[in-house]
Design a binder for these strands. Structure first.
Lengths: 201, 201
DNA sequence: GTCTATACCCTGATAGAC
DNA sequence: GTCTATCAGGGTATAGAC
């Protein structure tokens, strides 16, 4: 391996390390302040960079936001499978696990809760990202739900389409109240009650 | 009545009219852009005022926000009673009516959905307002739910405290997906399904 | 009560050196 | 790849006239 190649590889790794650090910092500030409220200067500082230094890696604030969201999706897909409902035979158990996991990462939950609401506006840079995210999520879950219904594990008097919408709604809604009062709202336990309802118990 | 008094009354009425116009305009912009995204200049213009003209009535943007929220609460209390669960004997019906009503006022729903999420941050000027709003809402509803449970109209295997949390969660969560895709998400119908679940049907 | 003019800060982004 | 310096624009708020 030539010295030139070595140098190249080292720089590439540095770049990747810098980008990761920036995304990490950006996630925290977006979570705390939302997209609009977060300041590039603060993010840069937290990543040990100046603002132009940051902008060398991400051409604009919008680009940075999209990178944060893409990275988040990547990590989540690694942690959980494509469908959040879990393997058959125990249909809603992995959603329950997700809610329990979420209680350990309030920063991430806040990131998505604030950004989702902010991005309801059509001009928001993440608008399509989140709309797609709901569409994909519901689409992937619907098949698993149908199978659960066929096997009598999930009540069949509500269409599977409606069930997917309700599941995401309950998760999102619980997160809001939980973020306001983490001690008071036992998000995972209450979601568990809801799951029991859907099982028809 | 002296001429002086007449003049005073006319001016007072003008002031009130101006304030109402401002609040109306501010509601629309806060709903469209959130608190941070809304610009005082735009609000002023929509109310046929300049910015300093607006600031004569509301000392700061924060003051204006609180006025918008207070006004909203006032109107809602007029329209619905203090408790949103409705009269006994038909416990969850008025919540159902509220959701149906909300489908006719997407602007208002968006106002609250975006502001609630934005105000999760503790420094947000509306943080305490919304936390209190959830607390009051749940507190007022809990008694009615308990009575419904005692009369066998609502399933009793879930504590009334949890039911109040779930009701607000489902409403909030449905609103998010509905605001993204109003045509696709039949908010009222799905909330109806949920209510049926809680009735134990 | 409403205006014109303006102060002043904040923020995202660019130019260009190293 | 990162910096210093700087810009252009937008945003809230104030001073003071009418």
């Amino acid at each position: 391996m030539s010295k030139l190649q070595q140098t190249r590889r080292t720089q590439a790794e540095r770049t990747r390390a810098s980008k990761e650090k920036i995304i990490q910092a950006a996630s925290e500030f977006f979570a705390q302040q939302g997209y609009r409220g977060a300041k590039m200067a603060d993010i840069a500082k937290a990543a040990n960079l100046t603002e132009p230094g940051l902008l060398h890696h991400f051409a604009s604030k919008t680009h940075l936001l999209m990178a944060v969201l893409a990275e988040r999706d990547r990590v989540d897909r690694e942690r959980f499978g494509p469908s959040l409902l879990g393997e058959m035979g125990n249909p809603l158990s992995s959603l329950q696990k997700l809610v329990e996991y979420n209680e350990t990462v309030p920063g991430l939950v806040q990131l998505f809760t604030i950004l989702v609401a902010e991005s309801i506006q059509e001009q928001h840079p993440a608008h399509n990202f989140f709309m797609q995210r709901y569409q994909n999520g519901r689409e992937q879950d619907i098949e698993v739900l149908r199978q659960g219904q066929a096997q009598g594990e999930i009540r069949s008097d509500i269409p599977a389409e409606d069930l997917t919408i309700m599941l995401y709604a309950m998760m999102d809604g619980l997160q809001i109240q939980w973020l306001f009062e983490p001690e008071k709202i036992d998000m995972a336990r209450i979601f568990g009650q809801f799951v029991r309802l859907l099982r028809g118990e």
